[in-house]
Design a protein around this nucleic acid. Structure first.
Length: 641
RNA sequence: GCCACCCUAGCUCAGAUGGUAGAGCAACUGAUUCGUAAUCAGUAGGUCGCCGGUUCGACUCCGGCGGGUGGCUCCA
């Protein structure tokens, strides 16, 4: 008789063949009713999983962080069921529930689902939920599973059978008449899926490979109750309101012109000012952080890219060569070979190392039309790049230093939470396994030293080396790929980089490639969404607008503007003969941090009244007081929203 | 690039079944001088993304191209 250990420390003896659900029933009827899944030794399992050995078991109810995943996974089955009922010839592939609050399922069908189809499917799903069909689990042999799937005409699914490792139970899950090859976990019955909503449909390649046929994928979400769904939909609306493309237009920050070409950003004056402010901060911090700034050209002879390996390993992202006096030249997709040329311009000594060379380097990469997206994915962008040339002795120390510097910069920009990934050797790669191991190990050790939590992302490194990717979390808890740190033994070898060591021997330096913000384009897009356009004072293109109540205060208004401008602030004045409410609304829509209201009173006292974009008001502020207030807020870099 | 959808005034959007277009906001002009998110009136503004086809006639139907959106794949 297996012994089951419970979270409260209790031990429970159960009969052979008892399931997770049986245990829930034994502990309490109420708990059994609320049970959505189990967790055995930390791993999520289906309620119907038999307990054959001594384990630690936790019953997952709606309060569990993973509860929604179970609900969504169950909804996946319900959706596949609904689609099969509506289109009996459809073949199901697989579903997926990730942690993005969505589930999906792929279908082989010779049409694309329309929004009306989704409505029909959703209606059918709701019928199924009402039917309160219980989920049933059946363990079968491989042959039996194959036979059953063949009978159902699920040929795509049969190929998935081969993915199940030998020795693992092959389980079929059934609710109503619908049977699916699946591992679970599922809720007890469809009635526990409180709310479903289909979100979208699109095509996707079978097994994610673009040489395969396309399947139709439907995305949906599900929650235990309707309130949670409503909150989710509200979050989606909020994300739409913050869309940097929308805010970028509203605040007149940037645009893309069909005439110029897709993925090529035009920075309008206010957007350019925002970028300038970030860049100035970036340059100052780099100089004080031990970096040197460099500038390099936008094109180089094709030969340079052959030496670097880009011509073979990065070809699909590079634009066609141009002819310059019968020599082929290429537009740069990366800055590294140029910095390498600077390194190679003279003989280097170990005493000179490390070099830390930073450049806001504009690169051009061919991105397929379908992937372009606002400022986040473009064809021409400026990386906040740097290359460090270091000796093996200081490699780890330098990586640690880069990570710490990066965190410092992110904090200043208002980002305090990160997801960090260590990406290892990809399939297409240059260099020996030994170098790759050394480089990967260096990154890992540096990360461990900083005590920042990270995950391994296998096979996701760049062709010349492994990397650390840093994603910042925004105010909606979404994560954005920004920084990257890469260790590289390959380019130094390809370009024969060397330095003279203490003993007089020549050795190869190691390169660290790194970008913190990623690119100015992406980072500004990210900032806009993080702050919903309400940028902190130090980054606001317009920091304050002076609003005289009537024409009588016009000259005083200009005087206030002039004085603040003279103090280095970015201040506008609205002299139009509009009512105060109108001017405030406009400033509010423009997300200007401070509105300075001037009427008879203020003019007489030579003061201003302030209204923050938060709605907060304060009157009787002297100009000196205002300057002090602004300076302090700029210094803090923190934004009140 | 692939799949689906979309493209009407600067912006947001209306415009069954084919008969060459409208609203709100913005802009401009005038009046208003009004204390914390929209004062009133008037004016102007569109070869309905582009090219071709069908038709007596196309913003509406068909085809091609361009651009966009959501995915797939890829990525700073």
């Amino acid at each position: 008789m297996p012994e089951i250990r419970l979270p409260n420390g209790d031990c429970l003896k159960v009969e052979d063949g008892s399931t997770v659900l049986d245990v829930a029933q034994k502990i309490g009827a109420g708990l059994a009713k609320a049970a959505l899944a189990g967790r055995i030794d930390g791993k999520l399992v289906d309620l119907r999983t038999p307990l054959n050995q001594n384990v630690t078991l936790e019953i997952v109810t709606s309060k569990d962080p993973q509860a929604d995943d179970v609900v969504r996974h169950s909804a996946e089955h319900v959706m596949a069921d609904a689609v099969k009922q509506l289109w009996p010839d459809v073949q199901i592939d697989v579903g997926r529930t990730d942690h993005s609050e969505k589930f999906q399922y792929d279908f082989k069908i010779d049409r694309a689902f329309t929004p009306e189809d989704l409505e029909k499917i959703e209606a059918k799903m709701k019928e199924i939920l009402k039917s309160k069909a219980p989920f049933e689990r059946e363990v079968v042999t491989r042959e039996e599973a194959k036979k059953r799937l063949e009978e159902m005409g699920e040929h795509l699914k049969i190929s998935r059978l081969a993915d199940i490792p030998e020795g693992e139970d092959i389980t079929l899950f059934k609710h109503g008449k619908f049977v699916d090859l699946c591992r679970g976990p599922h809720v007890q019955s469809t009635s526990q899926i409180g709310a479903v909503k289909l979100l979208d449909s699109s095509a996707s390649y079978w097994r994610g490979d673009e040489s395969n046929e396309m399947l139709q994928r439907i995305y949906g979400t599900a929650f235990g109750d309707k309130k949670a769904l409503a909150e989710y939909l509200e979050r989606i609306e909020e994300a739409k309101r913050r869309d940097h493309r929308r805010i970028g237009k509203e605040l007149d920050l940037f645009s893309v012109s069909e005439e110029v070409g897709p993925g090529l950003i035009l920075w309008h004056p206010k957007g350019a000012l925002l970028r300038y402010l970030i860049e100035e901060f970036w340059r100052r911090e780099h100089i004080s952080g031990g970096y040197d700034l460099v500038f390099t050209p936008h094109v180089a002879r094709a030969h340079l890219w052959e030496t670097s390996g880009h011509s073979s390993f990065y070809k699909e992202n590079m634009y066609s060569p141009m002819d310059v006096e019968e020599q082929p030249y290429l537009i740069k997709p990366m800055n590294c070979p140029f910095h390498i040329q600077i390194y190679n311009s003279k003989l280097r000594s170990y005493r000179d190392l490390p070099f830390r060379w930073a450049e806001l380097g504009t690169v051009y990469r061919y991105e397929r039309s379908g992937v372009l997206h606002g400022l986040l994915r473009v064809r021409g962008f400026t990386q906040d790049d740097a290359h460090l040339f270091v000796t093996p002795e200081t490699l780890n120390e330098e990586i640690t230093r880069v990570i710490q510097f990066m965190v410092h910069i992110y904090r200043a920009m208002g980002f305090t939470e990160y997801d960090i990934y260590l990406s290892t050797k990809p399939e297409k790669a240059v260099g020996s396994d030994e170098d790759w191991d050394r480089a990967t190990e260096a990154l890992r050790q540096a990360l461990e030293k900083t005590e920042l939590p990270f995950e391994i992302d296998p096979g996701e490194g760049v062709f010349y080396g492994p990397k650390i990717d840093i994603k910042v979390r925004d105010s909606l808890n979404r994560s954005w790929q920004c920084g990257t740190i890469q260790v590289d033994f390959n380019l130094p070898a390809r370009f024969n980089l060397e330095y003279v060591d203490k003993d007089g021997n020549r050795r190869a330096p190691i390169m660290i490639h790194r970008a913190l913000l990623g690119s100015m384009e992406r980072f500004v897009g990210c900032l806009i969404e993080h702050y919903a356009g309400a940028l902190p004072l130090w980054l606001s293109p317009v920091q304050a607008v002076v609003l005289p109540i009537s024409d009588k205060q016009a000259s005083y208004a200009k005087e206030v503007q002039d004085q603040l401008v003279a103090q280095g602030f970015r201040v506008e004045v609205d002299l139009r003969s509009e009512k105060l409410g109108y001017k405030i609304r406009e400033a509010q829509v423009q997300k200007i941090p401070y509105m300075l209201v001037l009427g008879e009173r203020e003019m007489a006292q030579r003061e201003v009244s302030i209204r923050k974009r938060s709605g907060q008001q304060q009157s009787g502020i002297s100009l000196e007081g205002l300057v002090k207030l602004f300076r302090e807020e700029e210094e803090k870099k923190i934004c009140e929203r």
